[in-house]
Design a protein around this nucleic acid. Structure first.
Length: 197
DNA sequence: CACCCGATTATCT
DNA sequence: GATAATCGGGTGT
C-alpha cells in the first residue's frame, strides 16, 4: 500500500482558479530511491491562458512552455531570473487552453533533513516558503518539465486534508506587473510557510 | 547583435 | 532598501 494517493487527472480538469483553491491541503511528494520528501501545499496562484497577460501562456508556445498546451495534470517547470526553478501544474477544463497553477509554498512534513542540506539553511521556515525555495528543497529542475503528476511516480501530488473556506485567503498575485488586479493567489491563513510579501 | 525584463532569493547596507 | 545571481524570451537596430 502506498503512503500517498496521487490525485487523478480529472482533479485538474477544471479552471485553474478552482484547482488553485482546491490544491490547498494536498500533498506534494517526491520519491527518490526510497527517500521520501513531502509537504502540504499552503499557497498557490492561478494563471490563465493567452488571455491572461501575466501568464507564460501569453508568450505563445516556446521551447519550454509546451506543457501548458498538453494534458491537465502535467508539470510545467520554468527557470526564473536565470537561477531558480518554479513548479506549476497544468489545470484547465480541457487540453490546450494554456492555464496552470503555480505552487508557491508547502509545509514540509517528511524528509526535512534532506531539504535542509539542499537548501543550506537551519531555519525550517526557509525551506519551502516560496516557489523557488520549495523547488530547490524537492530537487525540482527542468528535467521535470512535462512530468505527468498523476502517475504517482517520483514526483506527484497526492490527497491530503480538506482546508475549510474559513481558513482560505484570496489575494492578488505576487511579483507580476500585468493583470495585477486578479485575486488569484490562495493561501492558508496563519500558516508559517506561506511566502512573505 | 544589443538591450530589456522577468510568476525569485540571499546577502549585503 | 538595493543589488547580484545570469537564463529564457521578446523587441529593435
Amino acid at each position: 500500500m502506498r503512503a500517498y494517493r496521487p490525485l487523478p487527472r480529472r482533479f485538474y480538469e477544471r479552471s485553474s482558479v478552482v484547482v488553485a483553491r482546491e490544491l490547498l491541503g494536498k500533498v506534494l511528494v517526491k520519491e527518490e530511491d526510497g527517500l521520501i520528501l513531502a509537504g502540504v501545499i499552503v499557497e498557490t496562484e492561478a494563471y490563465g491562458g493567452p488571455e491572461d497577460p501575466a501568464s507564460h501562456a501569453a508568450r505563445g508556445r516556446t521551447k519550454y512552455n509546451w506543457p501548458l498546451w498538453r494534458d491537465p495534470g502535467l508539470a510545467y517547470v520554468y527557470r526564473i531570473y536565470g537561477v531558480h526553478f518554479c513548479l506549476n501544474v497544468v489545470a484547465a477544463e480541457k487540453r490546450g487552453l494554456g492555464s496552470a497553477v503555480l505552487i508557491r509554498a508547502v509545509e514540509p512534513i517528511e524528509g526535512l533533513e534532506v531539504m535542509m542540506r539542499r537548501r543550506r539553511v537551519g531555519n525550517p521556515r526557509l525551506l519551502t516558503s516560496g516557489p523557488a525555495r520549495l523547488a530547490e528543497a524537492f530537487g525540482i529542475d527542468l528535467s521535470f518539465n512535462g512530468w505527468d503528476l498523476t502517475r504517482g511516480e517520483v514526483l506527484y501530488i497526492a490527497e491530503g486534508r480538506e482546508v475549510p473556506d474559513q481558513q482560505v485567503v484570496s489575494t492578488t498575485r505576487v511579483g507580476i506587473s500585468k493583470a495585477r488586479d486578479k485575486p488569484w493567489r490562495f493561501y492558508v491563513r496563519g500558516n508559517p510557510y506561506v511566502s512573505r510579501r
